[in-house]
């Protein structure tokens, strides 16, 4: 069975390391914060000016002056700090964030990512995505493997306007986990439970490398 959104987030949380500063994009990536491994200390950075983002508040603690990049109300934690947007992007652009998790509409087999515009249909803007993908040490994409119509979103080339070139290091889709090697393409590392290599091959339009026995993910 293909992974659901929470399982994609849960699998990505296995990439967290103790002491990491992490930026989570809107959508599926925000769920990664719910699966930080026990005993691990990870600090979440919110591009709108908060380091040490805490969970959603209790009803009585809702503060309109404390939101995350997705405009959701949040809390601070002991050790949190607050700063302005130029400081926030200094952290991001200056390479101080170890891991960025983003959604995507398309990823190419050379690591290009498209996630901000569908010309003529959806032009919401890029927000902080271009800064994040141009600067982070480590970029993991959380995405659906195919579109609603069944077309592959892991492509030889992005057809949509690009957010960044050659920047994606890893993809976790609802079908599997892939390293991205610009020289070779998508390297299949793990399959979703019950999903076959054949199904993944048939739904991946970009170069796909399958070496040896591919293990199933466990939850």
């Amino acid at each position: 069975m293909a992974l659901n959104k929470d399982q994609i987030a849960q699998r990505i949380s296995r990439e967290l390391r103790d002491g990491y500063y992490v930026n989570l994009g809107i959508g599926i990536p925000t769920l990664v914060a719910n699966y930080v491994p026990q005993g691990m200390s990870v600090t979440f950075q919110s591009e709108n000016g908060l380091l040490g983002m805490g969970p959603f508040p209790y009803e009585e603690d809702v503060d309109p002056d404390l939101i995350n990049a997705g405009k959701q109300t949040v809390t601070t934690l002991p050790g949190s700090s607050i700063f302005d947007s130029s400081m926030s992007f200094a952290m991001i652009r200056g390479g101080h964030v170890q891991l960025t998790v983003l959604g995507a509409m398309e990823v190419s087999d050379r690591g290009d990512i498209a996630n901000w515009k569908i010309p003529g249909k959806m032009v919401k803007g890029m927000g902080g995505a271009m800064d994040l993908v141009a600067s982070a040490e480590n970029i993991i994409v959380a995405m659906m493997h195919t579109s609603r119509e069944g077309d592959s979103k892991l492509l030889p080339n992005c057809s949509l306007p690009i957010t960044g070139v050659g920047c994606v290091k890893k993809v976790v889709s609802d079908l599997g986990v892939f390293d991205v090697d610009p020289a070779r393409g998508f390297i299949l590392l793990e399959r979703a439970p019950g999903v076959s290599v054949e199904e993944i091959k048939s739904k991946t339009a970009g170069r796909l490398v399958v070496v040896g026995e591919i293990p199933e993910m466990t939850f």
């Binding site: 591009e47 302005d84 947007s85 130029s86 926030s88 992007f89 991001i92 652009r93 890029m126 927000g127 902080g128 995505a129 271009m130 800064d131 141009a134 600067s135």
Partner: peptide, 24 residues
């Protein structure tokens, strides 16, 4: 890009006519 916007505004107020960024 949001970081570019933030830095362009900061630079404008700080007397920096132009700067380089990797974003975009």
């Amino acid at each position: 890009p949001q970081g570019t916007l933030a830095e362009r505004i900061r630079a404008g107020g700080a007397g920096i006519p132009a700067f380089y960024t990797p974003a975009g």
